[in-house]
């Protein structure tokens, strides 16, 4: 009797759930799923003298992939993306660690998040002012007599783009790293230290396996955001900093070739996926991913313990 009443109530509860989810699902189908499918279909169409012709050919993909200039933009985008993600993660980890284990309030986090809300474009403009030909660094170096002519490499280069993107995305990276570290309670760390593990070992054997998903997520998010960005390369990249994202955006904003741009977008997505799988594989090779099979065999552990005892 009771069980029956409960299922009835559960059924009704589930029906309300479906009802509640309906608006958002419809919205996402209309403005996320359908456009994505449409874009995919578009990538097989042709553009003949600015008129779109329905087609089902791989011409756009082949054209893009056989153009050396396009492959170069992929490389530039990858360099910028991987550079940004690596630097942002390395810079943020100690701060995330500090917030997680050395502070009691979230004040520091709130302060850092505040910078995230200080406009994306403003920060690009700030770095243009700092790195520009007449910018702060160049004028300072000139007046100190370190250089005779302004350093041109500072601005309008992949380097300028990477520095700016690190500055833009670093709070986001930190937030994700921190939420990953929150899963690693201080007790685990203390226990590992008590059992004689070095700081390095604690990181590789305890912290990383537990926070693995969060670490990979934070790196990948920063990578995708940075590699897919097109406004920073447009404003600071110059001729050597043209990324695939910028190329795609040009196809869609000026009187460009939409189907070709759509194909490039899906190639870029595929590249992102490849980067993800390579990252996971590399971590596995270095035995940094979690999972029982990566634990050292018992004999190895015993030997290590014996060694630790002797020392």
């Amino acid at each position: 009797m009771f069980a029956y009443a409960k299922t009835l109530r559960d059924n009704r509860r589930e029906r309300t759930g479906v009802l509640f989810a309906l608006p958002v699902v419809l919205f996402l189908i209309a403005f996320f799923i359908v456009p994505t499918v449409l874009l995919f279909v578009f990538s097989f169409w042709q553009s003949r003298s600015f008129v779109l012709v329905p087609d089902a050919s791989l011409t756009n993909y082949i054209d893009a992939l056989t153009r050396p200039a396009f492959r170069q933009t992929i490389l530039t985008g990858l360099t910028i993306g991987l550079g940004t993600a690596t630097v942002a993660t390395v810079l943020s980890y100690p701060v995330a660690w500090f917030i997680a284990y050395r502070t009691r309030t979230n004040l520091l986090l709130y302060i850092i998040m505040l910078s995230w809300f200080s406009s994306y474009l403003v920060r690009i403009f700030a770095w243009r002012t700092i790195l520009g030909t007449n910018g702060l660094i160049n004028s300072a170096l000139l007046s100190l007599g370190v250089i005779d002519a302004p350093l041109e490499i500072l601005i309008f280069s992949p380097l300028a783009v990477t520095i700016t993107l690190v500055h833009i995305f670093v709070p986001f990276t930190l937030l994700l790293l921190l939420s990953a570290l929150r899963n690693v309670t201080p007790d685990f760390l203390a226990a590992a230290r008590d059992l004689g593990a070095s700081r390095m070992k604690v990181f590789f054997r305890v912290t990383l396996p537990i926070a693995y998903k969060g670490f990979v997520g934070s790196f990948m998010f920063t990578f995708i955001l940075a590699a897919g960005d097109f406004i920073t390369p447009q404003l600071l990249g110059g001729r050597t900093g043209i990324t695939t994202g910028l190329l795609i955006s040009n196809q869609f904003r000026q009187t460009g070739n939409w189907p070709s741009g759509a194909a490039m977008a899906f190639i870029l997505m595929a590249v992102f996926l490849v980067v993800y799988f390579v990252l996971v594989q590399v971590l596995r090779w270095f035995r940094l991913s979690p999972g029982l099979r990566f634990h050292p065999p018992v004999e190895e552990l015993r030997a290590e313990m014996a060694q630790a005892k002797e020392a």
Partner: peptide, 28 residues
């Protein structure tokens, strides 16, 4: 199962760069 599906659908737009969402909506 529906919960997992909703979770995936609700999170998916974050994973794509804004560029992708922008051009997809433009085409639509």
């Amino acid at each position: 199962r529906p919960r997992a599906a909703l979770g995936f659908l609700g999170f998916a737009p974050i994973v794509l760069p804004g560029l992708f969402l922008g051009i997809a909506l433009l085409v639509l």
